[in-house]
Computed example of a mutant assay.
Amino acid sequence: MTTNSLPPNPFVAAGMIEDSRLFVGRQDELQPMVSRMTGAQPTSINIYGDKRIGKSSLLFHFCQTWEQRVQNPSRYVVVYLSLRNVQCQAETQFYQAIAQELLSFSNVNNNQALSDPLRVTPLDRSAFSEAMKQWKKEGVLPVLCLDDFQTLFENKSEFNNGFYDNLRSLMDSNTLMLIIASQKKLDFYSKKYKFTSSFFNLGHVIKLVELKEDEVKDLLLLPAKNNNNLQPALSMDEQRLTQQLGLNHPFLLQIAGGLVCEARQHGHDKEWVKKRFYDESKRLPSQLNSRSWKRRVRWLVWDLPVRLGKIPKFIGGSVDDISNWIIGLVILFMFALVVAGVLNLNEVWDFIRNSLGLK
């Protein structure tokens, strides 16, 4: 994909981010992934977090960029596999799906020492283990980024303790490295489904949370953040609106940014954006419920005062949002005094007009 083919709306709210130029942030997670892979003893990782927090995008981006992050790429092969999107009803199908991804690399497909062990039929547990051991003899570490790993747990007849024990054995012998994405930590699933395998105690666990403030700013600057020849898709006012709606949640920011771009294209106003945003963000009910108090507080301490502060405009005033906010806070305080019986409405109104010199 060329630079010119970047879409005018760079925000991705429909699923995983597949264009690496539209991926921002997550350096605090990417660096440990590299260091655990390139260390003297590779350490498998469990990345967990809420739905739509960006786990799939992170794993996919790592698979796209790992060669630029390591000193000797020939020592590794990193693949991404979503277990939700492949046919893995049987254990052999799991191994076959991995083999297919590994064989998609030309340096694997053209190297018989690496490719022939993966073409064994049937590619069962024993054959897969032998293939991985052959890779180790060749000095190549396969790194499997496995997304939606929790989809395997309910099929205990196929993916039992023996299956997980074998994966753990391959990891402990530095034959294989896994980077596993799941909604909960793996030990949560071991308790829920009563697994006893030591596989579920992975060496390193990363909780994926909301974006940091500087990462939010980088996202709002897309596509210019990763290309100095481009301009941000959002104006400063549009960036503020997007952040006001999405806060620090990556998926909500993508929804808000996409809607703002759409509104500009079709001539819709802010109220249209807000209404559409709250409708579409219902796809994250649990996350939104946990944030609803933040929005209520923001509405009380910012949005409401600003709206109240705009009242003088209707009688001849002209002020910016900061002035609106200050004036609005004064109005709220004055109305509180009215409720307390200290002032009456006429006194509040006269005070506002006198303060603004509108008499």
Rank of each mutant, 00 (worst) to 15 (best):
V273C: 08
G49K: 07
K310C: 09
L114R: 02
F195L: 11
S281D: 10
Y95G: 01
D321F: 00
F60E: 05
Y189R: 02
E271K: 14
R84M: 08
D237L: 04
W293A: 04
H204S: 13
I322S: 06
S56E: 10
L329Q: 15
F251E: 06
Q71M: 01
L288M: 15
K294I: 11
V140G: 02
N46Y: 04
G258Q: 07
N229G: 14
K156N: 10
L329K: 15
N4Y: 15
I53H: 02
G316H: 09
D350R: 13
N107K: 14
D237F: 00
V205C: 00
E238Y: 04
L144C: 05
R264L: 11
P117R: 02
R69V: 06
V79D: 02
V342K: 11
V338N: 01
I98Y: 07
N166K: 12
S190G: 04
Q89M: 09
K359H: 01
K359E: 09
S57Q: 03
T38P: 01
N160A: 04
R52G: 06
H204M: 15
K294T: 07
L211R: 01
A224E: 06
Y189I: 05
F335P: 00
V348S: 03
N228M: 12
S292M: 13
D269E: 13
L152K: 01
G328S: 04
L211T: 03
L208R: 02
L252R: 06
N227A: 15
L253G: 09
S169T: 14
N46F: 05
Q87V: 10
D172P: 01
P232L: 01
F333W: 13
G54S: 09
D279R: 09
I206P: 01
K136W: 04
G246H: 07
L230Y: 08
L144A: 05
F94H: 01
I53Y: 03
P232T: 04
F149T: 02
R353T: 10
D165V: 10
L259P: 02
S44C: 12
L81Q: 06
V140D: 01
F277W: 11
L356N: 01
Q31F: 05
L176Q: 12
I47L: 03
R276C: 08
L304Y: 12
L241N: 06
A14C: 03
Q150G: 06
E158W: 05
P117H: 02
F128P: 03
H249M: 11
F163A: 08
L176Y: 12
V140T: 06
N226Y: 03
S104G: 08
N248D: 12
Q27W: 12
D237A: 13
V319M: 10
F200I: 08
N9C: 02
D320E: 10
I17P: 00
I331P: 04
L284E: 11
R283C: 07
V205F: 00
V205S: 08
N110I: 04
E154R: 07
N228D: 15
K274P: 00
P305W: 12
R119W: 12
D124I: 07
T175I: 07
H268M: 11
L219N: 06
I315L: 11
Y48S: 09
W299Y: 11
V338G: 00
L152F: 07
L241F: 09
W349R: 15
S235K: 07
D214N: 14
M177Y: 01
C63A: 15
S323R: 13
R240S: 12
G328K: 05
I45Y: 03
V339D: 14
Y80V: 05
L208C: 04
D165G: 11
Q254C: 02
Q150C: 06
L343H: 03
P73V: 10
